[in-house]
Design a binder for these strands. Structure first.
Lengths: 280, 280
DNA sequence: CCCCTTCTGTAATATCTGATCCGGCACAGC
DNA sequence: GCTGTGCCGGATCAGATATTACAGAAGGGG
């Protein structure tokens, strides 16, 4: 955009006409084909290409890539428009920005949940006859543990796959089409998890993949995919939305199993109290 | 968008995969070429076209025109993010209520952070000369693990207290006034954690307690207390705000340690690559 | 366990698109 | 008025793209 504005003076007549047309309905005109762009600007296709070349792009495709990125940025943060205009909002503490992004991620994640997927996954997890196995990546495995801890209370046949890679594969041998695999894998996807998912698919295991918006390759092997937003202003990705989804699933499963899980919870509570006398 | 979500149940497996990929990265993925769309969704190009056809478009070009129009509308009115009151404004799904509550919890948690506490805690965690020990409760220990995994990358001397209660106390023996204990304890507070915090306080260990808004009794033994909101419409409490705080802390520590942590991260990455040859 | 239906990817095709070339045009300087 | 320079657009080409046809794979029901 600024690129276009700055180059404006040094443009020829028809190039300027192209620039004006582009600015007039920015940025979408640039995402059309060269022919339509030329038509709407009232110039020829070669002029458009010369114009694109002059403002520094190697090809029309490059130019469109750049536009796409800009559109994406604007769509993600509708407020981004303000950042040029009001330098007063600058000082906001970084952690506030973090909190906002995290809250946004949750809202966006739930808003985009494919219809029926959530329910389908909840149904699988609520069925005690279908053994559930959970596993996560380098960081997200902690979330898998968190979920395991809750599910174990709600139903039997819940296992968290621990330890070494070889160990996982040993457990795979006993899985079949009745088993459910809940796998978490986000950006900088782990090869071993992807391979594991593929192997599980081969054995007809029903796989659920909880991943980020760009989808782990493991999603290809999955029956159900739950994509979550993970981008925050930090050097790391955020698992907040993943956790929110997990908790929503646990809540749903709890609601569905109603009485059964309640009695099971009571029983577990009793055992815990007996086995673990008050400290001190 | 709604078109895609509503059609979801009646789609075949690979069509659903296409739909999921589209929704996950909406709407820009749809503006790419069929080939790239197919690649990112992990299906073949014809599957994409069948999918487009099934949701009612005559051609891929038609579909893209429609997307363009939607993008334009959203770019013009930044508020369009709150989805337009579609005629089918069915009773809000409970999971939406859950998402809103979780997002609210994060916002509220950060708003109410005592001034300076966050920074003080970050300072402690960023100091590599002060050993950090992390531990959590029945469910929240998974969060402690998550935090441990990150901190270990940023600095040395990070340990997660595992295993049995007796084991913890053994580790206590080696702690002193230079050590930092990061303890997570929320509602239905655990006696053993409270006792552990008290013991640590007696040994002059600098204790940080991450807890809920009603404060664990362990907070009495703490130098720093970080309270988070945990109430959601569910039978369980939510750890989402806890995780958000943890991630914000990790981000802050990362920022403070800057270059040092970067080189450390690089070193760790190298070791990982050597010790873990590509799978297959 | 096998057959039938449905689905899905490979391969071929026809169309479209971006990019280039070159002839013509306008304008400025002489 | 003439010439030379820079600009523009129609025609053209190679490559990419959407689309279709088909055959093999998968899944479900008897």
């Amino acid at each position: 955009m600024d690129l276009v504005r700055d180059a404006m003076p040094s443009l020829t007549t028809s190039e300027k006409r192209a620039a004006q047309a582009l600015v007039a309905d920015y940025p979408l005109l640039g995402l059309e084909t060269v022919a339509r762009f030329a038509d709407r600007a009232g110039v020829s296709a070669p002029s458009i290409l010369r114009f694109i070349g002059r403002i520094g792009f190697a090809s029309y495709a490059d130019f469109q890539r750049r536009l796409m990125a800009e559109v994406e940025a604007r769509l993600l943060s509708p407020l981004a428009k303000a950042d040029a205009g009001s330098p007063s909002t600058r000082k906001r503490a970084p952690r506030t920005a973090f909190a906002e992004a995290a809250a946004d991620n949750i809202a966006e994640t739930f808003r985009r949940l494919p219809n029926g997927e959530f329910e389908a996954v909840a149904t699988l997890l609520a069925d005690p006859r279908r053994p559930v196995h959970l596993i996560g990546g380098r960081f997200t495995d902690a979330l898998a543990r968190y979920m395991t801890a809750h599910l174990r209370i709600l139903r039997p046949n819940v296992s968290h796959l621990e330890g070494q890679r070889d160990n996982w594969h040993d457990q795979l041998l006993d899985m079949g089409n009745r088993d459910v695999l809940f796998l978490i894998d986000i950006r900088r996807y782990q090869d071993d998890l992807v391979a594991f998912a593929a192997e599980a698919a081969r054995l007809k295991v029903t796989t659920i993949v909880l991943t980020d918006q760009w989808l782990s390759p493991a999603a290809r092997s999955a029956r159900h995919v739950l994509p979550a937003r993970i981008a925050v202003p930090s050097a790391w990705d955020s698992s907040v939305a993943l956790l929110a989804l997990i908790e929503a699933l646990v809540a749903e499963v709890t609601a569905r199993r109603g009485a059964e899980s309640r009695s099971r919870m009571a029983a577990i509570e009793t055992i815990r109290r007996q086995g673990q006398p008050q400290s001190r």
